[in-house]
Design a protein around this nucleic acid. Structure first.
Lengths: 222, 222
DNA sequence: CGGGATCCCCCGAGATACTG
DNA sequence: CAGTATCTCGGGGGATCCCG
């Protein structure tokens, strides 16, 4: 068997063969936010060797998870995009994200937040949210990352970059993650400047009730 | 940062740091079926180097996913068991299993089915099943692997080993996977000896309506 | 025999430089 | 911009050995 195979006729083993390679999950996380160029991917994955990114993209194309396509038009740039089969991974990656996020407290030394990781986090945080009474738009920024969210009815749309004319612009700092876990209430978070809100500060309550990232019950027992 | 880290404050990245190591997902899959001894794990993971199994178990204990405990009583053997935090991985591993299984057709040359992989597959296959009218018990064997399932109401219980006095003993061969995908109907499967049923052959219909493993829509388009 | 530890080899990851 | 080329080094694969 090829070196990366496990020799078991098992769904999890097959998934592990494809996804268990270093950097692969993060590449897919980034591509799930939309098609990206090689240099966009490299920028969103600081520390990845360029040859490894190149290798992974070829493997993922080989495995049918992504496609490499020349973008028509003026710029002849090349973009990578998820296939349908690749997009089917979303529930699994979301479940992994949720598990990982439940075990996160403070960032470790030097850890960053990227655009794609922020979008991914917000999308997962919005799952299971109650139906919104009114349409609300947010711009969320954490570190250098910026994302936007449009909350309307039972759907939440999240994407990279600011939302022009958002109802509220929320800038998260230390303590932002505690607030999303419910360990720090919005009013206190504003008072302690763990969060800065431009626009109606009251909208932070709506934000928190829509986007929640609980701590793992097994870890609060510490 | 440690070598296996990604330097991103992101749930998926954190999950990948723990789960992205070779063999780790399969070790957890096996432990999710219940506590296991070192030698049980080694037997269920043919090909794993013993030093690597040892290393992984230490890492997983360090990360709080499993505990190593001396089993009291006559045999002083040591067992490894999931912690609560580790057990929270089940939804994520199930989602990965489902995705992987959706992409599986025939086994590759030399691929085997283990007890734990069969249990895992049946558990995932039972998700979303309709409420059963009557209590049914099955013993399922594929290759050398044997599992049992108890279907009752809206719950399905799956475990390793045969169920004594099961209502039906189902032995799957080539074509079994097609049947679970709905590509081969039960009567034909029996006729072609893709499946052998001891007991009431009609129970195979109940089995198939409870345990389904669809093919990926994106792959049937091939 | 269960439950590992030790050894060596080699591949793949990381870093850096370079090119169409 | 979108990669390829080359080198080094740590970790995985495989076999063997050890200890209660």
């Amino acid at each position: 068997m090829r070196n990366r195979e496990y020799g078991q006729f098992c769904g999890l083993a097959r998934a592990a063969e494809v996804l268990g390679q270093r950097w692969t999950l993060l590449i897919l996380r980034d591509l799930l936010t939309g098609p990206r160029r090689y240099s966009d991917l490299a920028a969103g994955l600081p520390g990845i060797p360029s040859n490894l990114l190149s290798t992974r993209l070829k493997e993922l194309e080989q495995d049918g998870l992504i496609v490499r396509e020349a973008r028509g038009g003026a710029d002849r740039s090349i973009v990578y995009a998820m296939t349908d089969r690749g997009a089917e991974l979303q529930p699994a990656l979301d479940a992994l994200s949720r598990w990982g996020a439940a075990g996160m407290r403070e960032p470790r030394e030097g850890e960053i937040v990227t655009d794609a990781s922020l979008v991914s986090a917000l999308r997962v945080a919005a799952e299971g949210a109650a139906i919104a009474e009114q349409r609300l738009t947010f711009t969320v920024s954490v570190g250098d990352a910026v994302a936007h969210a449009i909350v309307e009815g039972d759907g939440v749309e999240v994407g990279i970059g600011a939302h022009p004319g958002a109802d509220a612009v929320i800038t998260g700092g230390p303590g932002f993650r505690d607030m999303l876990a419910g360990a720090l209430d919005p009013a206190t978070a504003i008072a302690e400047e763990a969060v800065v809100v431009e626009g109606d500060p009251g909208l932070l309550d709506d934000f928190v009730s829509t986007f929640t990232v609980p701590y793992s019950p097994a870890m609060t027992a510490d």
